[in-house]
């Protein structure tokens, strides 16, 4: 029985770290910039504004940026996926660790999505759908394009009916 417990081993493409840094970093920088350079002067007009609030805001901004910088490498370190016979396994999550197992033949269809920045990096995200309302989509991000295609083909082949 323990053989079935085997943890997946394959990692994402390392360049996904740079991609995440860029993609998340842009929005995080924008939001903190907004809060600090526009939000702070406005809030300073408020008569109850004290330096304590200013320090709190600074701390929040720094924490937000730190999360944006630290989470990509941590997420990369945690991410594992792989096939075990007919099962697609995934393990991921920084604080909340999740392990998912999806039988290939339960998959309804497989999508490969590539955002503009993802394309720049030659990356692709594989999205697998099973029947069901809640929790029916499973994403494997940060795959090299060729690998994503391979995986997709493998799933299609394993299903065998070419209906994906």
């Amino acid at each position: 029985m323990t053989s079935a417990v085997a943890t997946p081993t394959e990692r994402l493409a390392p360049r996904v770290i740079v991609y995440w840094l860029l993609a998340d970093g842009i929005s995080a920088t924008f939001l903190t910039g907004l809060a600090w350079f526009i939000g702070r002067p406005i809030a300073a007009e408020w008569d109850k504004w004290t330096p304590t609030y200013e320090w709190l805001l600074l701390a929040a901004c720094i924490a937000f940026l730190a999360v944006a910088v630290l989470s990509p490498p941590l997420a990369f370190v945690r991410w594992r996926f792989g096939f075990l016979d007919d099962l697609l396994l995934m393990r991921y999550g920084i604080l909340f660790v999740e392990e998912r197992a999806v039988p290939v033949r339960r998959m309804q269809h497989v999508d490969m999505t590539r955002g503009p920045i993802e394309r720049l990096f030659g990356l692709a995200t594989l999205v697998v759908f099973t029947a069901g309302n809640e929790g029916s989509a499973f994403r494997v991000p940060g795959l090299r394009l060729a690998r994503a295609q391979e995986l997709r083909d493998r799933i299609v082949e394993a299903r065998g009916d070419g209906r994906l």
Binding site: F96, E98, E99, R100, A101, R106, A131, N133, E134, G135
Partner: peptide, 28 residues
């Protein structure tokens, strides 16, 4: 349809986990 094992930080500390079973249509 699929099976998920999830561990929150507290659960990781205690070596606990929550298992979720998904079926088609119904709630997990």
């Amino acid at each position: 349809q699929s099976v998920v094992v999830r561990q929150s930080p507290v659960e990781q500390l205690l070596g606990l986990a929550e298992l979720t079973v998904h079926v088609a249509g119904g709630s997990p």
